[in-house]
């Protein structure tokens, strides 16, 4: 009898890949199973790519006025989504408007996230005096209705896209401060913090290298849900005439410009509204998926 397996390649076992899988790898596994979240992610990816590459794609100039082609309906030749009251191409305006809205949303969230998390970490880690001062101030911010607070801040700073961004991010700070403080409070009592101290680590090192990474899951979920909220809030401010100013293509501005023609040409205001709806929906789906994937209780 000849040895049968002489020339056969023995399949090598690769334990490495499985061993390498950290907490993030496991979260991705759970996330992948959530169909709605994956759909949201794909939708978001398509929109982001289209918006990022808009200048290189064959879209019309979003600000090119063509008064002979005003308020053309959806499906017109040369203007797939029609034109607005100045004959500007709707598709192009929505895509360029999305760039502004999404960037505003992301930057506003980033500002709120950085300041809010820092405050939350300090309050939760050092407790006592810091906690009281910071969290009572956050309570004051939270006590205002958010639109009122945002309007008040814009009233103080003056209208404009930049100031809207600052206003909505200030409104968002307490949200992050609370989330991060809550997690920090629970992690600071963990034995590994004591162990780190016993091995000579300083407070700042422990805060940023040990507590912050543990707080990331709730922060990521909050961010994904909050970007949508920020986009909505910024568009709302623009709709009220406090944010982006015409002729800039921005969804809130387009919505407010289009409302005058809602009877003769509903698409001019409905389409930007639908765009906002789609983005916020996609972000919320992704956020829900992330929450399930990162929440230790759901496992």
């Amino acid at each position: 009898m000849e040895p049968v397996i002489q020339n056969q390649e023995i399949p090598s076992i690769k334990p490495k890949q499985k061993a390498k899988q950290g907490p993030w790898g496991m979260a991705w596994k759970v996330f992948k199973k959530d169909k709605a979240a994956v759909a949201g992610l794909i939708l978001l990816a398509i929109m982001m790519v289209a918006m990022a590459l808009a200048p290189f794609l064959p879209f019309a100039d979003p600000n090119e006025v063509d008064l002979t082609n005003r308020l053309k309906p959806v499906g017109t030749e040369g203007h797939v989504l029609g034109t607005d009251h100045l004959g500007r191409d709707m598709l192009s305006r929505i895509i360029y408007g999305g760039r502004v809205s999404i960037i505003v949303g992301i930057i506003a969230v980033t500002i709120a996230l950085v300041i809010g998390s820092a405050l939350g970490l300090i309050a939760g880690y050092f407790r006592n005096f810091y906690d009281t001062v910071i969290m009572r101030f956050m309570d004051i911010l939270m006590a205002f209705p958010y639109v009122l607070l945002a309007i008040a801040i814009i009233a103080a700073l003056g209208p404009g896209l930049m100031n809207t961004m600052i206003a909505v991010s200030i409104v968002g700070i307490p949200y992050y401060a609370r989330i991060v403080r809550g997690s920090t409070l629970s992690f600071r009592e963990m034995e590994f913090v004591l162990a780190e101290r016993a091995l000579g680590a300083g407070h700042l090192h422990i805060i940023f290298h040990h507590i912050l990474p543990n707080c990331l899951p709730p922060i990521i979920v909050a961010v994904s849900l909050d970007v949508g909220w920020m986009i909505l809030a910024a568009a709302g401010m623009s709709f009220l005439g406090l944010g982006a100013q015409p002729p800039l293509a921005e969804w809130g501005v387009m919505l407010s410009e289009g409302q005058e023609f809602i009877r003769v040409a509903p698409h001019v205001s409905l389409l930007p509204g639908f765009a906002i709806f789609l983005v916020v929906l996609a972000l919320n789906l992704v956020g829900d998926g992330l929450r399930d994937a990162l929440d230790p209780k759901s496992k």
Binding site: L194, A195, H209, P213, N214, L216
Partner: peptide, 10 residues
């Protein structure tokens, strides 16, 4: 408790 004295995310 060695279960909790190492940071789980690092």
């Amino acid at each position: 408790d060695p279960m909790t004295s190492l940071n789980p995310v690092l």
